[in-house]
Computed example of a mutant assay.
Amino acid sequence: MLAVGYAHGQESSAGPTVLLAQGDSDCYAIGQRVAAERGGELARATAETQGGQTVCRIVILVPGGEGERPRRAEVIVPAG
């Protein structure tokens, strides 16, 4: 099950920075896949526990249309 939220995001001139904590390599791979599926760039991928299960909190930047700023999309998916 996916939980998705949108808010206006900001992008630096150097592009987004991907932040990973130790043990988040699986979430990084999942984040890369989610970003590719949505046509965006991975900004962050972190593992956390929700309801006793490990999930990945993925933040991607989705390009805006006609010169608009990218949108920030946050997706929570099961880890693994």
Rank of each mutant, 00 (worst) to 15 (best):
G52R: 09
T54M: 13
I58R: 00
G15Q: 03
Q22I: 12
T49R: 13
E68A: 15
V77L: 11
C56Y: 02
E74Q: 13
C27P: 03
Q53A: 15
G5C: 14
E11T: 01
R33W: 10
G67P: 10
Y6Q: 07
A7C: 13
D26F: 01
A45C: 05
Y6K: 12
R57T: 08
G9S: 06
G65V: 14
P16K: 10
G80Q: 08
T46D: 02
A7L: 15
R69G: 06
A35K: 00
E68Q: 15
V77I: 11
L61P: 00
I58Y: 03
C27M: 05
V34G: 04
P16F: 01
G40L: 05
I58E: 04
A36D: 10
S13P: 06
C56G: 01
H8G: 12
L61Y: 03
G80V: 05
S13K: 13
E11S: 06
G39Q: 04
G40N: 05
V62Q: 11
A14F: 07
R69Q: 11
A47Y: 07
G39P: 00
D26T: 07
M1N: 11
G67V: 08
Q50V: 15
M1H: 12
Y28W: 08
S13E: 12
S12E: 06
E74S: 14
D26E: 11
Q10M: 11
G9D: 07
G80C: 12
V34D: 01
V4E: 10
E41D: 12
E66Y: 15
G39R: 09
L61W: 00
A35E: 10
V77M: 07
G39A: 05
V18R: 03
V34H: 05
L20E: 05
P70N: 00
V55A: 10
Y28N: 01
R72S: 00
Q50Y: 14
T46W: 06
A14P: 00
L2H: 14
V4H: 10
I76T: 12
Q50W: 10
V4M: 10
G9H: 02
R38A: 08
A7N: 14
Q32D: 01
V75E: 03
I76H: 03
E68R: 13
E74D: 14
A29L: 12
I58A: 00
V77R: 04
G80S: 14
A45Q: 01
S13L: 15
I76S: 02
V55K: 05
G64I: 01
Q32C: 07
E74K: 12
A79V: 02
Q50L: 15
L19T: 11
A35L: 02
L19I: 07
M1Q: 15
A3S: 11
I58N: 08
V77N: 03
Q32S: 08
R72K: 04
E48N: 11
Q22P: 07
G39S: 09
V75C: 03
V4S: 13
R57G: 01
